[in-house]
């Protein structure tokens, strides 16, 4: 395990109350186990949709969403299971969606790349890079007009920062001083391309200053840093201070899309991978909690068993649920009011 990350977590743990720390840990563990179950079952061929797993990046969604109210809005990209779960999305409905069932969160019309839960204000996702950025600015504009004190959060990757819509959205959000927080999950790769083969400078967080938006770069594998940084900026946005931007540096362990490790593809080194697995956001934080005696191994096992039980139920629910009926193909093309 990475000693530096451990040391920093160990130092900052006292700044966060125990309940929050345990919630962060539990959330990360849940995301890790959900993605693990998907990776385990995906080869069966029953989840017939492109699936982008979040393994290794759990601290970002968990750390940010810990600060949100149920009424706050969240958008994410096609790698969105983490944000969906952290905002409170149902595991059962997620699995049913992956299985293409009518009980899925998008009724079998979305698959992994289009998950949604309006009940918890997880507003939706896009399979287009950067596609939801302006939509999140739109919910923030509505909040501003209604003065409802809600904050909009949008998660996206490093690749999205290369899109024109990124600049367009930043400018509009700053112009209208919207309550929106941009969370860049910089995992350094767009499919197989490294950030530095696509971007002139490794300075994503600095690109927002020209609009007057505060931008910070943090360790996206340090859940406490993600939590504390986003807490401050979310609270400020809620008070009317306008948008903010966080670049969370993190790493995707698995292939861009699909359930496997992909070192053999040759676009990244074992050394790099090992370094980031050493910096595992979940196990490093778990070790700190154990050392501080905020949790014991039995309690961790008990949480794992409980999540495992939820997963079994979710898979069974997905397996047993019916597929959408023939006529349902036309449902939802238009809103019939």
């Amino acid at each position: 395990m990475d000693k530096k990350l451990f040391r920093i977590l160990n130092k900052y743990i006292s700044t966060v109350d125990k309940k929050t720390s345990l919630s962060l840990f539990k959330n990360m563990l849940r995301i890790r186990m959900v993605e693990g179950k998907i990776a385990e079952l995906y080869p069966e061929g029953k989840m017939r949709c492109p699936t982008h797993l979040y393994t290794g990046e759990e601290a970002v969604a968990s750390g940010v969403c810990e600060n949100l109210k149920p009424s706050d809005y969240v958008f994410s990209s096609y790698r969105s299971h983490g944000a969906y779960l952290a905002k409170g999305g149902s595991i059962k409905k997620l699995f049913a969606e992956l299985y293409g069932k009518k009980t899925g969160c998008s009724r079998g019309k979305g698959g992994s790349m289009h998950i949604v839960s309006r009940q918890v204000n997880f507003m939706g996702t896009s399979a287009l890079v950067g596609g939801v950025m302006p939509i999140a600015a739109g919910t923030a504009l509505a909040s501003d007009m209604k003065k409802d004190k809600r904050v909009s959060i949008v998660f996206f990757g490093d690749g999205a920062c290369e899109e024109g819509i990124f600049q367009e959205t930043l400018n509009f959000a700053a112009l209208k001083k919207l309550p929106i927080i941009f969370i860049c999950e910089n995992n350094f790769y767009a499919t197989y391309s490294h950030q530095l083969t696509r971007q002139a400078r490794d300075n994503i967080y600095k690109r927002v200053a020209i609009y007057g938006i505060p931008g910070v770069r943090i360790d996206g594998n340090n859940v406490l840093e993600v939590f504390r940084t986003s807490k401050k900026l979310i609270n400020e946005a809620r008070r009317g201070r306008g948008p903010a931007f966080i670049e969370c540096r993190t790493y995707r362990w698995l292939e861009h899309v699909g359930p496997y490790f992909d070192l053999e593809a040759g676009y990244r080194t074992k050394e790099e991978m090992d370094k980031w697995i050493d910096r595992c956001p979940l196990s490093s934080f778990g070790k700190v909690l154990l050392k501080k005696k905020m949790i014991n191994p039995e309690a961790i096992n008990s949480i794992k068993r409980s999540i495992e039980a939820d997963l079994e139920k979710a898979v069974l629910f997905a397996e047993k649920s019916p597929f959408p009926g023939c006529s349902e193909i036309y449902e939802g093309v238009y809103n019939e009011q």
Binding site: M133, S152, I165, N171
Partner: peptide, 24 residues
Amino acid sequence: RVFEIPISENAITGVAIGASLCGM
């Protein structure tokens, strides 16, 4: 309620979508 926009046709369309998701 009646305002000029940046010349950002794509993002502003997205903004309209987002606002409509909140009942606007």
